Amino acid sequence: MSPQTKQAERDKLHRTLDEIANDLRGKVDGWDFKAYVLGTLFYRYLCEHLVHVINSEQLAAGVENFDYAKLDDDEHYTETLGYYILPFRLFDALEADSKKNEDLNIDLSDAFRAVEESTVSTDSADDFAGLFQDFDASSNRLSGNVKERSERPGSIMRAVKKLELGDFSDTTIDVFGDAYDYLHRTYASNAGRSGGEHFTPQESSEVLSEVAENKAKLIHRTYAALRAP
């Protein structure tokens, strides 16, 4: 993909992140803002990935017009993905009800906890343990006002919903990595927080993986590429 295409996708992602920040400016600390946005984005991914995989499997099995998101049954698909999310807790379901749901922060906390609990006694348990610990939907860090503690996660969810991610495999950038890097540089750093965290840009990772694949033949070209502005 051309650098122009990648930059256009990044610019669109960054504009959306800035819109969310402007909406919450002065209301949520930059460090917390990063955690809330990334947590929301990742939860959307988990939900959409689960729905896509289950629907694809059902279609391949000959089940027409199957849509997991519309099921009411308590069906578990932990063996398929290592986790499961019930239809009423899917990102789209919570986001659609976010403007009028006065208990959204509670529902989000329950949803995050349920994701982790769904992995208990599975090989993926360690990967999901504490996954959303930085996204405390009931924390006073969102607001000391109970009503606002539900309104603000809802605002973030509606903004993240606007991101036209489609099938994540269709994007030419590392959406999560790029969002993390941008949020960390722009907002967390402004809040005077670093936590000793580091992120390797996607381009550098691609070049280094090429070196690993071709061993020593590309060392000089790789060094030049990493030094390039």
Score class of each variant (00 low, 15 high):
217 K>L: 14
214 N>W: 14
2 S>H: 05
29 D>R: 15
221 R>S: 14
63 V>G: 04
14 H>I: 13
174 D>Q: 07
126 D>Y: 08
174 D>E: 10
166 G>R: 06
146 V>M: 04
153 P>V: 13
188 A>H: 03
220 H>R: 12
110 D>G: 01
46 L>P: 00
56 S>N: 10
143 S>T: 02
110 D>I: 02
109 S>C: 08
49 H>Q: 10
200 T>W: 15
159 A>Q: 00
32 D>I: 03
153 P>L: 07
223 Y>T: 13
114 A>F: 00
24 L>P: 00
215 K>L: 15
130 G>K: 12
153 P>K: 08
157 M>K: 02
180 Y>V: 11
219 I>Y: 15
67 D>Q: 08
62 G>K: 07
3 P>D: 14
142 L>Y: 03
151 E>F: 01
200 T>H: 15
65 N>G: 10
186 T>M: 01
203 E>Y: 14
111 A>Y: 00
10 R>D: 01
105 N>E: 15
186 T>C: 00
74 D>A: 13
202 Q>K: 15
218 L>Q: 10
211 V>E: 07
5 T>K: 11
17 L>N: 07
224 A>G: 08
216 A>V: 11
150 S>M: 05
219 I>S: 15
39 G>L: 05
210 E>V: 05
45 Y>H: 13
59 L>C: 02
26 G>T: 07
58 Q>L: 03
25 R>V: 13
172 T>C: 03
149 R>Q: 05
200 T>L: 15
204 S>H: 12
102 E>P: 00
202 Q>D: 15
188 A>S: 12
59 L>F: 02
160 V>I: 11
106 I>S: 06
77 Y>C: 03
106 I>L: 13
144 G>T: 00
14 H>P: 03
173 I>A: 01
4 Q>V: 09
45 Y>Q: 08
105 N>C: 11
111 A>V: 06
48 E>L: 05
229 P>I: 06
129 A>E: 12
